[in-house]
Write a protein that binds this DNA or RNA. Structure first.
Length: 258
DNA sequence: ATAGGCCTGGAC
DNA sequence: GTCCAGGCCTAT
């Protein structure tokens, strides 16, 4: 998905539907998920109650009342769908969580790259995340310090969850466009003004996307992402696409010229 | 830094 | 068929 705003929206819905409910059964429908949790541990989830749900970067932590944690990550395509235990499985259903009140949450994920893991109480591994992109306490100054230690281009750096957690390929391009920064700029050559503009642009882009669901995709307003050849919204120059670290970058070669 | 792998679907 | 895809890990 699913970048920070979409994961945040998913977490909120999941929280509303699941907290306080008791799990009757979790079913893993796809081999890629079955490989991650043994059948015995999976069966042992029955009877646990969902205590809390939180987002860290793009990870979702589903806390059970006994301290165990279901750790979910949507990767490219995942989302939660809601229904009842008797429903027909949706296309691309990869896992179901059935509750004792017969409600059901289904993990749908067409590419099956998403993950769900179960961690025993107190055993959650380090997720390797830097400051959360949506955190108000994450400052331009902190961002500047991190960037000063890097020599590579800024755009791939924004995808590094250790630099800042939650940005993905879409909003990285969007934020750079908004801040008028060339995606090829070496991190350690950005000026203090550019770093400040970038921090503000990230906040603005995430705020605009707030509440977005992955499946509502077409309704999201984007300025450059997936707009190759389309006139830049600021200067009318056609948007250009090129690859950085194997991922598409979109930018305006005129107003992001530096 | 970059390529390949994980998976599968959709656009061409 | 071929290419591309909002993520991330591992190997080179």
């Amino acid at each position: 998905m699913p970048e920070l705003p979409e994961v945040e929206a998913a977490v909120r819905r999941f929280r509303r539907k699941a907290v306080g409910r008791t799990i009757a059964k979790v079913t893993l429908l796809h081999p890629s998920l079955q490989r991650r949790i043994t059948p015995a541990r999976l069966r042992a989830i029955a009877g646990a109650t969902i205590a809390a749900v939180e987002r860290r970067g793009k990870h979702q932590l589903i806390h059970l009342d006994d301290g165990r944690i279901l750790l979910a990550h949507f990767r490219m395509n995942g989302d939660w769908e809601y229904g009842n235990a008797g429903d027909d499985l949706q296309r691309f259903a990869r896992a179901t969580i059935d509750f004792t009140d017969d409600s059901r949450i289904t993990f749908v994920d067409s590419r099956a790259l998403g993950t769900i893991e179960l961690h025993a109480a107190g055993t959650l591994p380090d997720l390797g995340l830097g400051p959360d992109a949506a955190s108000a306490s994450w400052t331009a100054r902190q961002l500047g310090t991190s960037l000063a230690a890097r020599k590579g281009p800024i755009k791939p750096a924004l995808l590094d969850q250790k630099l800042v957690a939650g940005l993905g390929n879409i909003y990285a391009s969007e934020a750079l466009w908004r801040a008028k920064i060339n995606p090829r700029t070496p991190c350690n050559t950005l000026t203090a003004k550019q770093v400040s503009d970038l921090r503000k642009a990230i906040a603005a882009v995430l705020k605009r996307a707030k509440g977005t669901r992955y499946t509502d995709d077409s309704t999201v307003h984007l300025d450059v992402y997936d707009r190759e050849g389309v006139p830049c919204r600021r200067c009318k120059t056609p948007v250009v696409r090129f690859a950085q670290a194997g991922r598409s970058t979109y930018w305006c070669p005129v107003c992001q010229r530096n």
